[in-house]
Amino acid sequence: MYSFDHVIERRHTYSVKWDETERFFGVKDVLPMWVADMDFQAPPAVIEAMTKRVEHGVFGYTAIPRSLKEALSEWLTTRHQWTVHPDWMSFSTGVVPALATAIEAFTSPNDRIVVFSPVYPPLFQLVQKNGRELVKCPLRFTEKGYEINWDDLQEKLKGAKMLLLCSPHNPGGRVWTKEELTTLGTMCLEKGVIVVSDEIHADLTLPPFQHTPFASIDEAFANMSVTCVAPTKTFNLAGLQCASIIIPNRSLKKQFDAAQQRQGFFTLNTFAVVGAEAAYRHGGEWLDALLMYIQKNIEMTCSFIDTSIQKLRAVRPEATYLVWIDCRELGITEQQLKQLLLHKGKIAVEMGSKFGEEGRGFIRLNIACTRKTLEDALNRLAVAFEGL
């Protein structure tokens, strides 16, 4: 019913991924497999709804309708078995701005904020740029992927005001289990630490794994947490700039909303509202088809690396379309690794140290593309490391 094999030309569309590669990497003529968006069109229902809105032709100030909140609430119930009241929802132009708002709303300068590492870079950057103390809690890298170091976390939570959680985890692709999240929540609850959970990749959890929203586990967890979700990764709508912030605790929500008002946030843009509601109401079948396609791309990637680039180890993701690859056995520096990829392989990927020092020696590969593009990318990886 849905085909993801059609190659769509994205150059000259102001695409960060395809048009800005030279600015970020300093080279031309490389295949961009870096920033986390997909090379696929949005669901047909989203395109249809937005086309209809364009034909109306008037794009004045747009309210956030209750119907969008109800669509998201139904989506969370159906996909994640989490009952969310529409009144718990606030909105933002993105998860990153929402995280920044949460930091301003719930902490003060020099407060300690705990962040696991390696992780999506803005989680580090927002803490530091807002004058808070960044407390890194390195994850353990095992044969099964990343695990939380509970003893270290217990120490790091002392005196902390907030923990920023990436769930599912980016770049490692871990889907934290309900048991892990319960342990984490219990530790934070005991120490009075607010948990801000970035769950933007939740809908991209791959079968048979099951994402558990942190706030859904226990009422006490819900009352000390802020959850950020968005249709942007799920349906490839990042350019629409839309995120939802779910805060069951009325007092915390009031603080969050007040912080947004101080920043001048007013509403979402017209197409964010229309696109998000259409996606949540009609995007389920498309997403199921997408996840099957991504699964096969992951299989293709891991199999190729296992057989053709044996010094590399691909960490099979439990969620996301991002493959975290361990290159440390090559025995070269990250700078040498980058040079081989860009100048010999002619491919642009995210370097591991961007996600924290603990990520040095790894690369992150975006496999949300057509099979034809992925085959090209994998061959470029092989060329980059040929002879090592």
Rank of each mutant, 00 (worst) to 15 (best):
F4N: 15
R10T: 10
V16Y: 10
E20T: 10
F24N: 14
G26D: 03
V30K: 13
M38A: 15
D39F: 09
P44T: 12
A45M: 09
Y61H: 10
S67P: 03
A71K: 03
S73M: 04
V84Q: 09
F91N: 13
L99T: 13
A105R: 04
P118Q: 12
Y120L: 13
L126E: 08
V127P: 01
Q128M: 12
E133F: 01
V135N: 09
R140V: 11
Q154Y: 15
L157V: 13
A160L: 02
M162N: 00
L163P: 00
G173H: 02
E180N: 01
E180C: 01
L181Q: 08
T183W: 12
T183P: 00
G185A: 03
S197R: 13
I200Y: 09
A202H: 02
L206S: 05
F214W: 14
D218F: 00
A220G: 01
N223P: 00
M224G: 06
A230Y: 00
K233Y: 06
L237M: 15
P248C: 09
P248V: 10
G264D: 00
A279W: 08
E285I: 03
L291F: 02
K296E: 15
K296R: 15
M300F: 10
T301Y: 04
F304H: 13
T307M: 05
L322S: 13
W324Q: 06
R328W: 05
Q339T: 08
L340D: 13
G345D: 09
I347Y: 03
V349Y: 05
F355K: 14
A377I: 08
L381P: 07
A384Q: 12
